[in-house]
Write a protein that binds this DNA or RNA. Structure first.
Lengths: 334, 334
DNA sequence: GCGGAGAGTTCCAACGTTGTAATGTGCGTA
DNA sequence: TACGCACATTACAACGTTGGAACTCTCCGC
């Protein structure tokens, strides 16, 4: 920067002003400085800038696991949204571990980022107070904590699950399986989606049958396959499946097909998340598009607002993205 | 840090020494400092450290697209490897664009990272000289540039493709399709894998038939499906498919199944990459495991070595990871 | 009792930038 | 002519840390 200043014949601060788009600079001076920057190939030192200004231009995204397509696509959307704001994104994987989620929130790396997008998985509503102590701007994603001290962006889980269930009901299905429940959970995605499922049944005057609720430990293919295997083995008849995410649906579809069930003729299936893969499976999977782009954009925007006004207490905000039902072959009319 | 020093009754530099595990510190002093750090909740300012020491503890990983499961899993492996070295990872998506790849390599954010893991896609062998000008430590992943000035870590593409092809040949298949070629390409993954395919045919005394080579524009499900659709429409008979990655294989499988072809009875299929999904498709997909963990670990290690000895010219190193053939249902003996 | 080695600690400066306040310039108006 | 004001630029200090040199203290051998 000193070199640039010398070459352009101005003070070092003027160079800084040019770089930071300060208002009052004569066009001619600006050009001279920019030329010098060009000739010398000068790049600002971001550590120094971070030290002096208190901003690093980096946010961190805490997600459970990138190998889960939902989170990979979420990360993709977040990175695109961040890119438009000239932010870099550090991704940190919490790996479904409560301990690790906490250590990521409090560890020294927090020092390096201006804000945190935190996709909560292991912490629960009761842990909301733990977030009070964290002064880094933060926006929560997901369904585990609703009334914390931070902003919260997510999808309409209950409404989405209700719409999915209604979709199958509209096809004439009456014995519809819910796949992906977590025992006893009320608040998380599983609890909310189960509630939506139940609402749709109630509205249609269909009975809620516990035997049709498949519980799982995690939301991956394997768990979906396992739960479906148990269900098939149990002999309980069913003609529709609302899976609480696409991976569960795919795992279950595979088991049903092995068991000789035809989709959608025997069983209509709908998933949740609209991951890319669902377009190419056989049959292609109907699903709920949760509005990932909207979630990412809003989350980044809210975070930026907090970052831009440090020290200002902003009341927690909540944003629920719009979802859409995406009908595909797995729930086509027969 | 000043506060910690005051509370512990030592100088600020001693605190720094404790934090940085300097050798000569009396255990008692160390304890006093650590206690003070604990009480005050002190966290080092990473920007300041970065400014002073020239290291940020962050590396960047440039990949084409996180929505591609291969790169998501690669990113996952890299982040795990980086984590063991206390490194953070900034992921940047180049989106298959040459322009963007270049701007990521030269942009101001480079200033923020100690090193770059660069999964080359758009640049080619002829662009290797562009890397000369970049002084940030760098390790290349992938197949586009082999003789650049940097380290290079990748898999044994040709050998892997040959093993995949041999696997199908060992099942008695003789009209084997290669799916995923890029017109005219010699060096990239597509070119190398095509070479392996051809070697296997030659070794087995099978003819190389251009009609069995399916060219694609990209390595996604859609392109695999499209290529297979053309092949089926062409009426050329075939009984095996070596796809150059799993997504292509999955797209192609879907089209074959729609066309009434049974896998593996009519057509045996093997892919490349061993992404998680391949375990759960119907049928499950045989594939080549490229040794992703090994690639990630070695790449991070080589990068760390370069970072640790700044200014020292290290001759470019090349590491080829071990691969394995993973036989699954799509190539089961009938 | 003295010199010397080395452990343990401290002092000082510097990393490259930006916020604040101050200074310098030109112009219209009293 | 003097004044105020807006624009344009600059001087200086400070952000929090660490490298390096310097200092003190302890212990050992002679």
């Amino acid at each position: 920067m000193h070199d640039v200043a010398r070459l352009a014949g101005v003070s070092i601060k003027t160079v800084s002003n040019v770089v930071n788009d300060y208002n009052h600079i004569r066009p001619e001076t600006r050009k001279r400085v920019l030329d010098a920057i060009e000739t010398l190939g000068y790049r600002p030192n971001l550590s120094a800038r971070g030290l002096r200004s208190g901003r690093t231009g980096v946010i961190s995204l805490i997600i459970p696991d990138l190998r889960n397509a939902y989170f990979a696509e979420l990360a993709d959307a977040v990175m695109r949204a961040a890119d438009t704001q000239n932010l870099s994104v550090i991704i940190e994987q919490s790996g479904d571990s409560r301990e690790r989620e906490l250590s990521l929130l409090t560890g020294p790396r927090r020092q390096m980022v201006d804000g945190i997008l935190y996709s909560v998985l292991a912490l629960g509503e009761d842990d909301a107070h733990l977030l009070d102590a964290i002064d880094t701007p933060m926006v929560l994603l997901g369904e585990r904590i609703f009334h914390g001290p931070t902003d919260h962006v997510t999808m309409r889980n209950t409404e989405g699950a209700r719409a999915a269930t209604e979709h199958l009901i509209s096809l004439g299905r009456t014995r519809i399986v819910a796949l992906g429940a977590h025992r006893g959970e009320v608040v998380g995605s599983a609890g909310l989606r189960l509630r939506g499922y139940r609402q749709a049944l109630d509205d249609a005057g269909l009975p809620y049958d516990e035997a049709l609720v498949g519980e799982v430990g995690g939301w991956y293919r394997k768990e979906g396959a396992d739960a479906m295997r148990r269900l098939v083995a149990s002999g309980v008849p069913f003609d529709g499946v609302v899976a609480f995410n696409d991976l569960i649906a795919l795992g279950a579809m595979r088991v049903m097909q092995e068991a000789g069930l035809s989709i959608p003729a025997d069983v209509a299936v709908i998933g949740f998340d609209d991951i890319d893969e669902t377009r190419y499976t056989l049959p292609s999977l109907s699903t709920i598009n949760p509005g990932r782009e909207e979630i990412a954009e809003v989350a980044v925007r809210l975070l930026m607002e907090r970052i831009a006004s440090p020290g200002v207490a902003i009341a927690p905000r909540e944003h629920l993205s719009a979802f859409t039902v995406v009908p595909r072959e797995s729930s086509a009319a027969v």
